[in-house]
Design a protein around this nucleic acid. Structure first.
Lengths: 125, 125
DNA sequence: TTAGCATATAAGTATATCGTAATGAGGTGA
DNA sequence: TCACCTCATTACGATATACTTATATGCTAA
């Protein structure tokens, strides 16, 4: 009873996962970008993303050598509001909005003048 | 970072605690009533209530020999919506709405004709 | 005052969770 | 082909969680 709901909230109950969700409000991101933006190792990021995918909070999309993760757009209103309400992380979010991966994750390109990446509908205008 | 929010969602991330919150939508309840309505021991219920109180989801009010617990009325809109959206538990909820503790917790009185207990504002009309 | 009810706390145990390091699989490009 | 990049998986240790039983505290009422 309430096992499904509890699993969802347990997925939300970790600071690192909340941070990942907060970042994905800005735009989709590949794993290696997230590794540079949250203070845990690459395997830890992968495991967190797997859990977020399991409970239906994010989905993935492969593109070239990268796996991009993004917030699902069919979140329930209450869950979408929770994510929208998370405090903002100005530096990391500004980075996401002004850079994108190029040939490798370490090589970034300012998005000024480049075609924009898909941006989550959760970003407030 | 996000420690406070994560603690809140971890508190929501347990089926027994969600069940307690779902029941408290109906009305305030004392510990011994909850013990009869959720499938864990009395100390377990006490411990869950302590955690729910710690994160600001419920408050307590002593009355005679009982400690009544109730949902806080200053919950954030998103959290209030989460609790309101929990699936209903018809039997237990009906019991709460038609009975109340009397001289002891085991001795209940049908509320028909009795003055009603405080009922949470979360109950849908 | 004393018995019993209501509740909280403590202690112990089993399991879950979150992190790291090590490794593997698969794609890309020189 | 081969070096490297990206990402996932595995293994393992430390800590947290959720339950139980046992016990303590405080109130009520006879």
């Amino acid at each position: 009873m309430y096992d499904f709901e509890a699993e969802l909230f347990r997925a939300l109950g970790d600071p690192t996962r909340l941070q990942i969700l907060g970042l994905l409000r800005m735009r989709q991101a590949c794993v290696c970008e997230l590794v540079d933006l949250v203070p845990v190792s690459q395997p830890a990021v992968s495991q967190h993303l797997r859990k977020l995918k399991q409970v239906g909070l994010v989905r993935e999309q492969r593109e070239k050598q990268w796996t991009f993760y993004m917030l699902r757009d069919d979140l329930s209103p209450a869950v979408a509001e929770i994510i929208r309400d998370l405090p903002h992380l100005p530096d990391a979010e500004a980075w996401l909005l002004t850079h994108r991966v190029d040939t490798t994750c370490a090589v970034v390109r300012r998005t000024v003048g480049a075609e924009p990446l898909a941006v989550s509908a959760l970003v407030e205008s």
